[in-house]
Write a protein that binds this DNA or RNA. Structure first.
Lengths: 153, 153
DNA sequence: CTCAGTGCAAAGTCTTTGCACGATT
DNA sequence: AATCGTGCAAAGACTTTGCACTGAG
């Protein structure tokens, strides 16, 4: 159930990014390259602080501000999704070569499990249509205890 | 499509609240009473600032800090739900006498429409079970354009 | 009378921004 | 050379908290 296509989009990603940046006259800098590589290599749902921490292992001089700016850029370009799991910080997730999915979040150990369910997506469309809505995106999060944490409590 | 049972729980609410407060030695103050009444009379998804603004029409001396503290109390007692629609502030919604529901959010005019869908809820349970999760709560938000805003754009 | 609640301002988080300097195109 | 990007620190937005005073039980 892992996403085998997670890596196949690497050149595609680079191409899209190049296009996006050229189109708006953005520049490829040492910092941006490092931040993006770090982010895409790590996977998961990363906060800016987390990305920054990893980036600093390679280059201490990069500032948080730049990480904030670069992650926002990735989100705007569509290469990453910004998520808010209610813990007070924005988390980013790689976007390309992945199906849309939602999240199961363990309120105890903070583990995040991803899942896809086409039938739910279909029903969402039905609901939206019923209300005359044109849905662009959605989020669905189920909060509870994962298997391991149920056992312990 | 309005919720007729929205008002029937008023004494029930008071009873629950009294119980909750007595149990933990909390005191009934002028401010708390005013804040709660204001909140429950207004309905919708209110931010602390909004509640505060309304409260101040009656009593200018109430501080935001107290509204923050009181809304948190309401959420902890189960009389209100804290929601985060990604606009950077927590919004509160009356909880009692209402079915669980989810939200359609217009990204243009910020209108929020509530809906219920039992089939989606059922499918969520299936997904959770499949992953060994015991779900306590969930949220689902569909973002897009409402009928009116589609027409205008 | 005692302990919880309140107001106020200060402090905390996370995030954005203004500005002078530095780097890319 | 012309712009865009970066670092830094300051500023913002929202929320919490320490403290002395007030008030409910």
């Amino acid at each position: 159930m892992t996403h085998d296509h997670e890596h196949e989009g690497e050149e595609h990603r680079q191409a899209l990014l190049d296009k996006y940046m050229t189109e708006r006259g953005l520049k490829t800098t040492r910092q941006r390259t490092l931040i993006m590589e770090t982010f895409f290599q790590s996977g998961g749902h990363q906060s800016v602080e987390e990305v920054w921490a990893r980036v600093r292992k390679t280059d201490t001089r990069v500032s948080v501000a730049t990480v904030y700016r670069t992650m926002k850029l990735l989100a705007e370009s569509g290469l990453a999704h910004a998520r808010d799991f209610g813990d007070g910080q924005t988390r980013y997730e790689a976007a390309l070569g992945r199906h849309h999915h939602d999240h199961l979040i363990c309120t105890n150990c903070k583990k995040i499990i991803e899942f896809e369910n086409d039938r739910i997506e279909a029903l969402q469309d039905v609901v939206a249509r019923r209300h005359g809505f044109k849905v662009n995106s959605h989020k669905m999060e189920l909060y509870g205890l994962c298997r391991d944490c149920q056992r312990l409590s």
